[in-house]
Design a protein around this nucleic acid. Structure first.
Lengths: 223, 223
DNA sequence: TTTAAGTTCCAGGCAAACCTAATGATCATT
DNA sequence: AATGATCATTAGGTTTGCCTGGAACTTAAA
């Protein structure tokens, strides 16, 4: 019994997956409704349907959690999304703030061979242009110990930008403006207690100031 | 007033375009219904809708014909389809009998920049893996004077395979089996009057027999 | 125990894309 | 000019997928 999954259903699974990452645990109806900008009643309906299809475990008290099948499907969609983003940036000269919407369409294309070959063409990338990990064909996420820049407490610390936690066009274009790119080295020069703003040097250039909000959205690793 | 076009509507436009190529002129309701395997009443409904949107000129007596806008849209979809097929074969190692269904999905992705960049990546190809002409970004089709092999009347004629008129998996796999590929040289050795079957030599190999049905679906050019 | 927050149930709606069955129009031929 | 064949249209449904608002319920905290 091959059950077809609609675009909408795939998007719900993706949303539940990403909320579960953040919130650790079962997902409330309302948080899905807010994220997707739809009515909570609509969410209830869909959650019941996904529960029927064994893609989530759902009850009114605990909320929703992906079943293994649901998680596999969510990871597959995420894999496709991130591979397509990588393709768009690496092969078709898109900038990192342009690719999300197109990838939202491309992620629903159904063809296992297509995604396998695309992965191969791109050289089996582990991270997409935003630094997000790309699940492999078995749904395994590459490990990376990243942390938000804002959590650095010692001036003088050197880190490397490996990802962003905010994918909005506005934020990405801000990074372009301050000429901060993935894999750039960042040295924390000063940390201001009162607002957690930071002075940083990017790739040994002149130091600049960034707000704690920005620092919160920059994911970095040691060295 | 940007009016959204659904997948289904795009498919109707494509169908009308291709029928107009064959049948020269206005398209009857019934021929669309047969091609898409749907009920004529359904077709009537959709044709009225497309007429409303000024994508076709339609009345019950003459049938349907694409307006300039409708033709431009049809050509755009065909362009996308054929560029994606080219990408799949040239970059992702697909065979020519595997690509149609995936391209049917990919052709509906909306992004002008995507298709422009894809075209560039592929080196602005003029023909897809089946030899079908790819419309350029202005909807212009490259010219090529091809004719079906079956129309050759003189034994000894040398031609080149430049396309196929039948895109079914069965036919394409038959061509693979007899090791006939695009751009192969074909020499017509003998023509049998009674059934129009032909003896041909492909790329100077041993001669083989093909039926007139096969010869009808092989598009060739001189030299 | 009351209230607020969250969830669900219910009734309903809407659009897209398809169907059947009956009716209507057109045309070729006699 | 009549007739029958063919094709198109109308009318009335169905299904799928998505959505809404409002009433009612549950739960947990004040």
């Amino acid at each position: 019994m091959e059950q077809a999954i609609s675009f909408t259903e795939e998007n719900y699974l993706k949303t539940i997956y990403s909320l579960a990452r953040q919130d650790k645990g079962k997902i409330a109806n309302l948080s899905i409704a807010e994220k997707l900008h739809i009515n909570p009643a609509t969410v209830t309906e869909m959650l019941k349907k996904l529960n029927e299809k064994n893609l989530i475990d759902y009850n009114r008290i605990d909320g929703a959690a992906l079943t293994p099948q649901g998680e596999a499907l969510a990871l597959k969609v995420i894999r496709k999304h991130r591979l397509w983003e990588t393709f768009l940036v690496n092969r078709l000269s898109f900038t990192w703030d342009e690719v999300h919407e197109i990838a939202e369409q491309l992620e629903h294309i159904q063809s296992d061979k297509l995604i396998r070959q695309l992965d191969k063409l791109l050289g089996f990338p582990k991270f997409d242009p935003h630094g997000d990990p790309i699940p492999d064909k078995n749904g395994q996420l590459p490990q990376s110990q990243t942390f938000p820049l804002v959590s650095v407490e010692e001036p003088g610390t050197m880190v490397k930008l490996v990802g962003v936690a905010n994918h909005t066009t506005a934020f990405l274009q801000y990074l372009d403006k301050i000429k901060l790119s993935l894999n750039d080295k960042i040295e924390v020069k000063e940390i201001h207690e009162f607002d957690h703003s930071m002075g940083i040097r990017i790739a040994n250039r002149t130091a600049i100031m960034i707000s704690s909000e920005v620092a919160r959205n920059l994911l970095v690793s040691n060295q």
